[in-house]
Design a protein around this nucleic acid. Structure first.
Lengths: 128, 128
DNA sequence: ATATCACCTGGAGTATACTCCATGTCAACA
DNA sequence: TGTTGACATGGAGTATACTCCAGGTGATAT
């Protein structure tokens, strides 16, 4: 797959794809003999993973580390697990926090609704 | 309340508190006659709100707009509601995305566990 | 043959959200 | 009365994550 196809498929700009590769967020992508990127299934798997993790706010540094560990073979399995478990913890906490914010937003919206109705009602009285 | 007390109470640095005020994320804080900030209950309410919203990733620009609307009185109630409803939508989507990431993380961790056990078992066989 | 087009690279620029710093003021205490 | 400490300001600096751009190459269509 060409970079433009991958860009289309995952909704990431070509610049971002090249950037991710450059900083080691995904392993080096295969090239044609003229030097053009040729994304394999595996590359796409990485893109998909990174997109998913990034969309949840997992920092780039962490993902670079994961990618590096991955490329060092099976010896790093425990380290990778540790890393992922840590991120899972953080993610769970973030979700909880967001749920709290959601409740607060809900309450605020309800309150605004009530207040607005109150004001409308008072204005009606005034003008009556 | 002094800035150091508020900083303690909400876990935001004094610099951040001043920054939030400067950019209009919270309304101007009362001062003593020598010019020192004297946070009221209301100020604290704003800090608490902003901290909550920011922790869920709601952008500063949006919160500045909300604060500005707030200070323009009841005429902006519908606009404020619209703003909050929009943010609620985005938040719900973000939470969903994070839950997907969480599931993916869980699967990856399970897989790592299995693979690791497999490898251990094979190594045991080898060395036997 | 040449023009076009997608792609390449390295480096600079941008957006967001703080965070730090130099310098200055004021109140209180030794 | 001098020094200490908390607080003030405006502006510069930092971290993170892209995003853009100038200049260049190689394959393909006219």
């Amino acid at each position: 797959m060409t970079i433009s196809e991958v860009s289309q498929k995952y909704g990431l700009s070509q610049d971002t794809l090249r950037y991710y590769e450059r900083i080691g967020l995904i392993p080096k992508v295969e090239r044609t003999k003229s030097g053009i990127r040729n994304y394999t299934e595996e590359s796409c798997g990485w893109i998909s993973l990174v997109k998913c993790m990034r969309s949840a706010g997992i920092p780039i540094d962490t993902l670079i580390e994961y990618c590096a560990l991955m490329q060092q073979g099976d010896d790093t399995l425990p380290a990778r697990k540790e890393l992922l478990v840590g991120e899972r913890e953080k993610l769970i906490m973030k979700i909880e926090e967001m749920q709290k914010t959601l409740e607060r937003l809900n309450k605020k919206i309800d309150w605004l609704d009530m207040t607005n109705q109150q004001i409308c009602w008072e204005k009606e009285k005034e003008s009556a």
